[in-house]
């Protein structure tokens, strides 16, 4: 397989440094992919290819791990990642309604990204904040005791405050 990797690009240089750091430790693949996603925001085929080549592991080992964990993304993400908790407590408290409302507001399905690359809508299993159910996270912020209306409001606010150009 042939893939063009711009190895001079600072992101790849940074990843290469991380790979050198982890290479000699046992089972470095997940750690390296973690770093790669921090650097690139997601894991496109080129990055997976680069990781496989540098760690001397088969491509399918990388792909298997990347697709196994929800955490790893293979599509570019938006500036703001919305994660709606679908854990038991949130489910009972109406997380599905929250998800539906946000989906309608943003015009995308779960797992998709808005065309303006502002929001990615995603779900997750339990943040450990069940007392606040239903819960969502936008980037690193947790928002609890949601109603569909409040969730839409918060997202709108993000567009105004953080959206910027």
């Amino acid at each position: 397989m042939k893939m063009h990797i711009p190895e001079d690009n600072p992101q790849y240089k940074a990843l290469k440094r991380e790979i050198i750091r982890y290479r000699r430790k046992p089972g470095p693949l997940i750690q390296v992919l973690h770093r790669a996603q921090e650097i690139f925001g997601y894991l496109p085929p080129e990055v997976q290819f680069f990781v496989a080549k540098e760690l001397n592991v088969p491509l399918s080992s990388v792909y298997g791990v990347v697709t196994f964990y929800n955490f790893f993304r293979t599509e570019p993400v938006a500036r703001h990642i919305i994660n709606i908790c679908m854990g038991t407590a949130c489910h009972v408290k109406g997380a599905a309604n929250v998800a539906e409302a946000l989906s309608k507001e943003l015009g995308i399905k779960i797992g998709e990204t808005t065309e303006d690359k502002m929001f990615t809508l995603s779900t997750a299993r339990c943040f450990g904040a069940c007392g606040l159910a239903p819960v969502m996270m936008i980037n690193d912020e947790v928002y609890g005791k949601l109603t569909p209306e409040r969730a839409v409001e918060i997202v709108k606010k993000y567009r105004e405050e953080h959206g910027g150009a």
Binding site: V57, P58, L59, S60, S61, Y63, G64, T67, F68
Partner: peptide, 10 residues
């Protein structure tokens, strides 16, 4: 001894 195949998804 090639390791070309693996499982994807879960």
């Amino acid at each position: 001894a090639k390791g070309v195949l693996n499982f994807a998804q879960r």
